[in-house]
Lab assay of single mutants.
Amino acid sequence: TYYTVKSGDTLNKIAAQYGVSVANLRSWNGISGDLIFVGQKLIVKKG
Score class of each variant (00 low, 15 high):
residue 5 V to G: 02
residue 42 L to D: 00
residue 15 A to D: 01
residue 18 Y to H: 12
residue 17 Q to L: 15
residue 18 Y to D: 01
residue 26 R to I: 14
residue 13 K to S: 15
residue 14 I to H: 00
residue 16 A to T: 12
residue 35 L to N: 11
residue 40 Q to F: 04
residue 21 S to R: 05
residue 6 K to F: 04
residue 26 R to M: 13
residue 6 K to N: 09
residue 34 D to S: 09
residue 40 Q to N: 05
residue 14 I to P: 00
residue 23 A to G: 11
residue 12 N to A: 13
residue 23 A to K: 10
residue 11 L to E: 01
residue 17 Q to N: 11
residue 36 I to E: 03
residue 23 A to Y: 07
residue 8 G to S: 06
residue 35 L to E: 15
residue 38 V to Y: 06
residue 11 L to P: 03
residue 37 F to Y: 12
residue 20 V to Y: 03
residue 44 V to M: 06
residue 14 I to C: 02
residue 18 Y to G: 03
residue 3 Y to L: 04
residue 36 I to L: 11
residue 36 I to F: 06
residue 35 L to T: 12
residue 27 S to A: 12
residue 16 A to R: 11
residue 42 L to Y: 02
residue 18 Y to L: 11
residue 43 I to S: 05
residue 32 S to K: 11
residue 20 V to R: 02
residue 22 V to P: 09
residue 26 R to P: 00
residue 15 A to W: 01
residue 39 G to M: 04
residue 8 G to T: 06
residue 3 Y to P: 01
residue 39 G to A: 04
residue 42 L to R: 00
residue 24 N to T: 13
residue 11 L to H: 01
residue 16 A to S: 11
residue 19 G to W: 06
residue 45 K to G: 13
residue 18 Y to Q: 07
residue 23 A to M: 09
residue 22 V to Y: 04
residue 26 R to Y: 05
residue 46 K to S: 15
residue 3 Y to D: 02
residue 13 K to G: 14
residue 24 N to K: 10
residue 2 Y to P: 05
residue 19 G to D: 12
residue 44 V to H: 02
residue 13 K to C: 07
residue 19 G to I: 05
residue 4 T to K: 08
residue 1 T to G: 12
residue 32 S to V: 14
residue 7 S to V: 14
residue 5 V to K: 00
residue 8 G to D: 08
residue 40 Q to H: 05
residue 14 I to L: 07
residue 14 I to D: 00
residue 46 K to N: 13
residue 3 Y to H: 10
residue 34 D to F: 09
residue 1 T to I: 12
residue 47 G to W: 12
residue 25 L to C: 02
residue 42 L to N: 00
residue 27 S to C: 13
residue 28 W to G: 02
residue 36 I to R: 02
residue 41 K to Q: 14
residue 44 V to G: 01
residue 26 R to L: 10
residue 29 N to F: 01
residue 32 S to Y: 12
residue 33 G to R: 07
residue 29 N to E: 00
residue 34 D to Y: 10
residue 4 T to M: 08
residue 2 Y to W: 14
residue 8 G to F: 06
residue 10 T to N: 08
residue 27 S to W: 11
residue 41 K to D: 08
residue 33 G to V: 07
residue 23 A to V: 10
residue 4 T to N: 07
residue 9 D to E: 04
residue 39 G to E: 04
residue 46 K to E: 15
residue 30 G to Y: 10
residue 31 I to Y: 03
residue 13 K to A: 15
residue 39 G to I: 01
residue 21 S to H: 07
residue 7 S to D: 15
residue 20 V to W: 03
residue 9 D to H: 01
residue 4 T to A: 07
residue 13 K to Q: 14
residue 28 W to A: 04
residue 39 G to K: 04
residue 15 A to K: 02
residue 7 S to R: 10
residue 30 G to R: 09
residue 21 S to T: 14
residue 21 S to W: 04
residue 43 I to R: 08
residue 22 V to H: 04
residue 2 Y to I: 12
residue 6 K to W: 03
residue 33 G to S: 09
residue 4 T to L: 07
residue 39 G to S: 05
residue 30 G to L: 10
residue 6 K to L: 10
residue 43 I to T: 08
residue 23 A to N: 11
residue 9 D to N: 02
residue 43 I to A: 07
residue 8 G to N: 07
residue 19 G to L: 09
residue 41 K to G: 06
residue 30 G to F: 12
residue 27 S to H: 15
residue 27 S to E: 14
